[in-house]
């Protein structure tokens, strides 16, 4: 089988789940005849019909809530946000009605809220954000941020099959930039389990989504000077794989936490606290955060480049930690 892009992998995951389970349906803006702003659902309406591929008015609150209502009748909606920046227009629906539904009154919400997030494409302040932490902070939600095509496919399948609301953040920079051969058959990836992207003994880089590839590039450069990075891809920021975090710290004793989300309130602070609680005595150097700046995502390429974490940041910090 030829390798497929991250975007095609998500398409395959959605398609296979819709074929497998008639309770799965798609709802969102321009997902039907047009096939979505990034063409994730292109062709779906012709195969599955307009009953299962529903174009909505520009109403994010209605998309999320209609999904919730349909879930109450035993269906498994996949709600698309054209950009995850627009998820804020459904914020109260997600953090109040959806997240709390099962805990409050026993009404499960088996649904997926998915869409493209992240910067690197000059999308500007409203098409580049990483809003995952607003939802990681909310009890009752699962927050998924895949970095590879096979994870994107395996995790969208798991999210659809989960009996709880899952937010699925697709990194738009990765959509057509990375390719991977898909495993044969119906393969799902467990939600809440991290993945060792690269094993190494000197410095751990705990990261997720597109930053896995920044770390990957840094690791190649550092290997030339004998510094071996261990890259842990979290895959999901809620639930967090605390055991994987503890294990890598105990192995390398030096940690960089890298994410594209901005620093304050990002998952790095939470991970630092977990390391403090579970592996403080194993540290040989201070926990280091590399993140985007605490400013809105800028539009113009030089501004955006300045804003985002870079390969050279990882290289510099890894060298510093090794010498610490």
């Amino acid at each position: 089988m030829a390798p497929v892009t991250y975007l095609e992998a998500i398409r395959q995951g959605l398609w296979e789940e819709m074929v497998r389970d008639p309770s799965v349906f798609l709802i969102g803006e321009d997902v039907g005849v047009y096939g979505g702003a990034f063409k994730i659902t292109e062709g779906f309406i012709h195969h599955f019909g307009k009953e299962r591929v529903i174009d909505t008015p520009i109403s994010e609150a209605a998309i999320a809530s209609a999904g919730l209502g349909a879930a109450f009748t035993g269906l498994r909606p996949v709600c698309e946000f054209q950009f995850m920046d627009f998820i804020t227009s459904a914020h109260t629906q997600i953090v109040n009605a959806i997240a709390k539904s099962y805990w409050r009154w026993g009404a499960p919400a088996p649904m997926v809220l998915r869409g493209p997030s992240g910067a690197g494409v000059s999308g500007g302040p409203f098409h580049s954000q990483n809003p995952e932490m607003w939802y990681a902070h909310t009890p009752g939600l699962k927050v998924i941020c895949p970095a590879t095509p096979s994870d994107a496919k395996g995790l969208i399948k798991s999210a659809i099959r989960d009996n709880n609301p899952c937010l699925f953040f697709e990194h738009k920079y990765l959509y057509r930039r990375i390719k991977e051969e898909m495993p044969e058959g119906d393969v799902v990836v467990e939600i809440g389990k991290a993945r060792t992207h690269r094993a190494g003994g000197h410095v751990s880089v705990i990261t997720y989504a597109s930053m896995v590839w920044v770390a990957d590039e840094a690791a190649k450069l550092l290997a030339q000077e004998g510094i071996e990075l261990e890259i842990i891809d979290l895959r999901t920021v809620s639930p967090l794989d605390e055991q994987a975090i503890e294990d890598t710290v105990k192995k390398t004793n030096r940690v960089i936490i890298l994410h594209e989300d901005n620093k304050t309130g990002g998952i790095a602070g939470e991970i630092a606290a977990i390391i403090n609680e579970r592996a403080f005595d194993w540290l040989d150097a201070p926990i280091t955060r590399i993140t985007a700046l605490d400013i809105p995502a800028p539009f113009s390429p030089p501004l955006e480049k300045f804003f985002l974490p870079k390969v050279e940041d990882v290289v510099r910090e890894a060298r510093r930690l090794v010498k610490y």
Partner: peptide, 8 residues
């Protein structure tokens, strides 16, 4: 919108 979803 939730009740609309139930009817959907």
């Amino acid at each position: 919108p939730v009740i609309a979803g139930c009817l959907l």
